[in-house]
Nucleic acid binder design. Sequence first.
RNA 1: GGGGCCGUAGUUCAGCUGGUUAGAACGCCGGCCUGUCACGCCGGAAGUCGCGAGUUCGAGUCUCGUCGGCCCCGCCA
Length: 532
Amino acid sequence: MKRTTYCGIPAAVSTPVVLVGWVHRRRDHGGLIFIDLRDREGIVQIVFDPKTSATLHEQAHALRPEYVIEIQGTVALRPVDTENPALATGTIEIRATNLTILNPALTPPFLPTDEMEPDESLRLKYRYLDLRRPLMQKRFVKRHQMMMEIRRFLDTRGFIEVETPYLTRSTPEGARDFLVPSRLNCGAFYALPQSPQLFKQTLMISGFDRYYQIVRCFRDEDLRADRQPEFTQVDIEMSFVEPSEIMHLMEEMISLCLQQVSSSQNRQPFPVLTYQEAMRRFGSDKPDLRFGMELHDISDIAAVCTFNVFRQACQTKGGRVKGIAIPGFGLSSRKEIDTLVQEAIDLGAKGLAWMKVTGDGVDSPIAKFFEPGQIRTVKQRLAALPNDLLIFVADSETVTHQVLGALRLKLARRLNLLDPAIYKPLWVTDFPLLEYDAAASRYVAVHHPFTAPMDEDLPLLSSDPLAVRSKAYDMVLNGTEIGGGSIRIHQHNLQAKILGLLGMSEEEARAQFGFLLTALQYGAPPHGGIAQ
RNA sequence: GGGGCCGUAGUUCAGCUGGUUAGAACGCCGGCCUGUCACGCCGGAAGUCGCGAGUUCGAGUCUCGUCGGCCCCGCCA
């Protein structure tokens, strides 16, 4: 057995070839038998002609899907008008001269074609059949190519790949750890790392200057369609850097990756939104920029209209009235709008006010509470067009953003505005350093406890901790956070102070993070990084 | 921790307000077929309707329980 080429890679016409692979499909004409032979590189058509060899043709009758076979034959141009443009090898075929069945196969529970996708549990039970599908093989290859690009790119930029331990110590904060029982210390457990955060900071303190790792992370949390308990991330840390240096580096790296999956060139640099602006305009800290439907504040008008719900919301401290214009949705039936109102209530709103935009004005149960001029201003501010539906939420700023942000996404999905072929990356910066956890009655870190506060906000740490912004940045792509990082705290005193704000006593801090606190006192360089 | 949807042939699914023998497509088996390529044509086999109980003259269909799957909220520094 000496394979001369892959099925998917056409060989020169009239050369003898030896091919091995899986029977993808058979087309038995009684006379001629065609076999599509598949390997990881693609598919090629094999022809068994009774005129070439009656016994060989007889043998080929036995072939069934997923048999593993070896074919000896000759590459030939297909007869005129029998070329198959859908196939990369569609201009040629292999005239078989010899057939060896290397291994027959049972009738598989599903055929490894891309046309139909069986239930996921069945795909996993017969994972090897699932992974034979050309689509799955393409994905694996794509992933491999991305990893190669990333390694090559980071190497040229002077990064050193370092491995860090998997059997490690549990850290408080963050996700639940996976635990591994220890045989040597009976009753004690290792924790699998949620991320190599402390290790990479240690490497910076050691002077490695630029580290990266393509590393597995483990988080024992509930799953989602796009969330697995173990996943791989590109982990990066650099010394003596500003956020902008890390962000530009990542833009280059991600652009290289996007080139692998999309033909369109991404313009660098990526747009940057502050957290505040992202929330204000999109009601989300990971906005999907593939479509508009931005949030607009009409609190000033709402405060002086005669609609009590709006006025009261504006009179409440921190209250807001905001709205979005949904293109074409003004033609919806009353029932469809009622459904939308219920969805808003399920998302936490007290209700949902709406206006159908007509040619000259609006059609709305709340129109009577507004002066014509006020309605004109509202329409103008939401950039409303005829047949749009305007929806409004009146509540605290938090609830308003949350509800409208979620509705914006739901409606975009319903209106088919989420084109999977378009990639809209951006940065979100200026996150708050801390948020208040009412249940635990203490502050918790928004990013993680090692994130550095912005220098100009340092005085606020004592007076108004929730107002402190951090040197953190998230990369967002099409509404998904695909990377996040920060400049870290490299000063012992500041780190101790933050741990204190998080409700940790000095003893606790020493017990949990003593190693880091000590290390910061032995010449820790300023550093920061990201995990994608 | 909470919520929604789904379990019917090997697979993907249909099956109406409960009603006679539970269907389709693909796949599988047999036959025919020398230029097909998701080949075509003819014929055939294939089902504990996830499981258990209940309501009913009668349950794939309704109710309760249970098991399994998918999705969402919480959670995921």
